[in-house]
Amino acid sequence: MHDKENLSDVSKLVSDIKHKNILSSLDIALRSEDLLKELISQGQWKSARELMNLVKIRIQYIKENLPHEATAANVMRHVLKVIREEYECESKRKVEGQSLHQLVTAHPADVLDYSESLINLKTSLIDHLTEYKVELESSGENIAAQASEHIHMDEIILTVGKSDTVEKFLKSAAKVRAFKVVVVEAAPLYYGHKMAVSLAKSNIQTTVISDAAVFAMMSRVNKVIIGTHTVLANGGLRAASGIHAVALAAKHYSVPVMVLSHMYKFTPLYVGSHNQEAFNICASPANVIPYSAGKILNSIQVFNPVFDYVPPELVTLLISHQGGNAPSYVYRLLSELYHQDDYDI
């Protein structure tokens, strides 16, 4: 047991997420970033190794308490990599690009143990984090700025439910292009309704369809643009339930599927099987069939899963603030974002 006092910051974050005080993933990312900045500047650490341990403990805490929350852990994981880099930089022993040759010939003594106490580390870390924060904050705009590359005149775009990133993206495209959007309502949460109203208010021609009409509609759709909960290490998605069917329908009609995702949604996690128990969570069945349905509920099972796994072969393009990438490239992005040793914490 680690001493609990030091975890109060992260447990506050967890409780805020649970209490739904912070909702959007961007807010979670910013909060986690703030939390680490606080830790770096105020925390009790002497060497980079100690600091890294503190961060790792926090990641573990989040994983234990919110097994399906990826954003906060990813931001922290990225900061771990930042710490490593800054340390290497400061200690002037930066290993230039780990080529195979170097890896093989590396002498055990060469491996950094991050135990030296460096004076400038704290300030340079804070600087780096401030930069990172700017990157986080502008990520949405950066993605939206690419909209005109992907959406063209008179196209029909299909999207599912509500995603802040997609909303921004479409609205940004609407400034220069005239196109139509088909919004799938995404029952039983009906986020699609909110999305549709918001798009229509920005003067985009919007059509709302029920979840069942996706296949029928797909033959007329030019592009599918969706958001996601996380991007998995194999390029697959953990997205809102129902998106798997959308992606399959798109594949059937050879419609490109574009997934908008912030970098902090890229998670070094593999989900190979359709093991729903571990991967998914079920929300209250009350949204599917009302509690007042009475006796019938005694003898039936009702499922209301929150997520769907979308295999990478159904995704055409992942668009982050750095531009578009194929799902097969995700492994590389991950190695840029996080250090190999931090994948599995």
């Binding site: 039983p188 979840d211 339930s241 069917a245 599917v288 899963p305």
Partner: peptide, 12 residues
Amino acid sequence: KCSYVLINALSY
């Protein structure tokens, strides 16, 4: 013995 889902839960 029945289960009931909406169409979005198909892949589940």
